[in-house]
Nucleic acid binder design. Structure first.
Length: 351
DNA sequence: AATGCGGGGCG
DNA sequence: CGCCCAGCATT
């Protein structure tokens, strides 16, 4: 804890840990938003998003009153957009059922959408000084090394063991700071690849370090190989405006907007196939599209080869089941777009 | 118990 | 490149 007080990073959702009197002054709403953003996302990536989000929606009431599209726009580029929709729904539940106050109790927190065991423990301990343990990726790695746990860390039995360990180590004084200290240790010293055991305050207690095993631990289950798929973006222009549509409410990039994308054509599509597809799906007649660009987008689970095609249409009546509209490319600020779509649109603007 | 869900940092 | 990140919901 002394180490944490000296080395903790100053972060916008955190009270300055070097100022004793700041404890308890954190805004629970800030903690909630930051923890949602931090799920599977590194601190450095989150900082700017967090500041922009809080500036735009400073309290749970503004978040609850906001349109989902606006929340997604504030999340645009951060990934895992389900988190944004869950957070939005959680805010509405809090305003409707709790008068806008965030519960201090971990079980009540965990009942909210998007809040699981980790986030519930984090909010309860950090925002409300409740004695709740947390195990995130950092804590799991720190504990696995401290105790030289060789079991595969992703297994449910191992997770349960780690939670029991974390709970046993948790002090009754300042549990929130303890939890943050463990995570900070994992993020800054007890790193996955190159652990800085020389600087670690608990190296003398670390069984992995004593055995020289720190680089082998924790053990993880091998991941499935990412699939490679082809997505064909057909950018359709009519009189300076382009067709945009909203993606379905589930699956990849749910609720985000896009230029029309064909995700089913395998192999070499050829422009004629896309002409037929646009006709059948949108009811629009286009000239055979021309290639504008190709780029690759990688996520954890798949590699997507994007083929950007450009076409124009004159007549035809738009047929569409879900939301679609024609827009100038410099007037898309209100439409949340995932990164590959932003990339495609930037390319078109350069054409 | 397994899978889907983004995007970026870093060696 | 590959691995991992202040996880969660769904099946």
């Amino acid at each position: 804890m002394g180490w944490y007080r000296r080395h903790a990073r100053v972060l916008p959702w955190r009270a300055d840990p070097q100022r004793e009197d700041d404890r308890g002054r954190v805004d629970p709403y800030h903690v909630l938003v930051s923890e949602a953003m931090l799920q599977q996302t590194q601190v450095a990536t989150v900082v700017d998003y967090f500041q922009r989000f809080i500036r735009a929606l400073p309290t749970v009431f503004e978040l609850a009153a906001a349109d989902e599209q606006r929340v997604l726009s504030l999340w645009q580029g951060l990934g895992y957009y389900r988190r944004a929709r869950h957070l939005h729904r959680a805010a509405r539940a809090l305003v409707d059922q709790h008068g806008g106050t965030i519960p201090r109790n971990a079980a009540k927190l965990a009942a909210l959408p998007g809040i699981g065991p980790y986030t519930a423990g984090a909010v309860a301990s950090i925002a409300f000084q409740q004695r709740e343990a947390v195990v995130d990726g950092n804590v799991a790695r720190v504990l696995a090394r401290l105790e030289a746990i060789e079991a595969v860390i992703d297994e449910p039995a191992t997770r349960r063991h780690l939670w029991r360990l974390a709970a046993a180590l948790l002090p009754s004084r300042r549990p929130g700071d303890f939890n943050q200290a463990m995570m900070e240790l994992g993020a800054t010293l007890c790193r996955p690849r190159s652990p800085a055991c020389g600087d670690c305050p608990v190296a003398a207690l670390c069984r992995a370090h004593q055995c020289g095993l720190e680089r082998q631990l924790p053990r993880r289950r091998p991941r499935r190989q990412p699939q490679t798929v082809e997505h064909h973006i057909v950018a359709i222009e009519r009189g300076g405006r382009w067709l945009l549509e909203k993606r379905p409410d589930d699956g990849l990039w749910a609720g985000m907007w896009q230029l029309p994308v064909n995700e089913t054509l395998d192999g070499e599509p050829a422009a004629p196939a896309l002409v037929g597809w646009v006709h059948s799906r949108y009811g629009l007649d286009i000239a055979p599209p021309a290639t504008a660009a190709n780029f690759t987008h990688r996520t954890t689970h798949r590699t997507i080869h994007f083929h950007l095609w450009q076409a124009s249409t004159h007549g035809g009546r738009l047929r569409r089941g879900t939301a679609a509209l024609w827009r100038r490319l410099d007037q898309l600020e209100d439409l949340p777009l995932a990164n590959p779509q932003r990339c495609a649109i930037t390319t078109l603007q350069g054409c």
